[in-house]
Design a protein around this nucleic acid. Sequence first.
DNA 1: AATAGTAATTACCTAAAGGTAAGTGGCAAA
DNA 2: TTTGCCACTTACCTTTAGGTAATTACTATT
Lengths: 120, 120
Amino acid sequence: MDNNVKNYADEEHCPVRNVLDRFGDKWSMLVLMLLSDMEVLRFNEIHKYIGTISQKMLTVTLKKLEVDGLVNRKAYPEIPPRVEYSLTDRTKTLMPIIQDLAQWANQNMADIQYSRSKAV
Amino acid sequence: MDNNVKNYADEEHCPVRNVLDRFGDKWSMLVLMLLSDMEVLRFNEIHKYIGTISQKMLTVTLKKLEVDGLVNRKAYPEIPPRVEYSLTDRTKTLMPIIQDLAQWANQNMADIQYSRSKAV
DNA sequence: AATAGTAATTACCTAAAGGTAAGTGGCAAA
DNA sequence: TTTGCCACTTACCTTTAGGTAATTACTATT
């Protein structure tokens, strides 16, 4: 068995680890889904939609998504500042999968919560 | 705007938060994918396949998946103990989505790493 | 009598994630 | 002259995730 063991956890090369780690955090998926629904949003709009995210974490989350090329950031040189966020083309191929995931979660939440309740 | 704001982050009711939080951790997806490939595995087999997971985290991960009804645990009353893990029917409807996610990660990893490298 | 084998469990520790609250810059309006 | 607006940034703190290494229970084998 030992020499046909696949590389299931190679941190450097495993795409799942390397890429999906990035939105396994608390807020990224939520931000992506919101932007998918609303198309373009300013910083404070996102902040209001997701009532419970802190300003700091919204900054961090958006910056990580931007660095990965999953979100566009467009800053207008105005006072007070205006910054608009939207999804990139790359993200648009991802969203259907995330929507499937969300749908699965919707369909299975009740059963899963029932399982949890039985587990004491 | 304020009164048509959707409930994007309600911790108690949002299915995405409530359900998908559970495999946004470091190991759950990997364990699910491995079990999907191999069908039935013992504790130590999983441990060997995923060379870098600690015994403690494998225990924790499997228990959480079991509690959610995503993994079956079958213990044989033998000495030394034998415990076999496999996916549940509930998980089998989830795996195609996870496979899609993995495929997307595969297809986009190179681009994303390039984006990251440009971001300094 | 000692050791090996399996599936954990436990105590302890470190690092990372995330929250809070205050501050920044620059202009316009009161 | 103060206040408000916006998009952050910073310092500080708490909580959670995850790692290490030792230990457990039970029996068969050496």
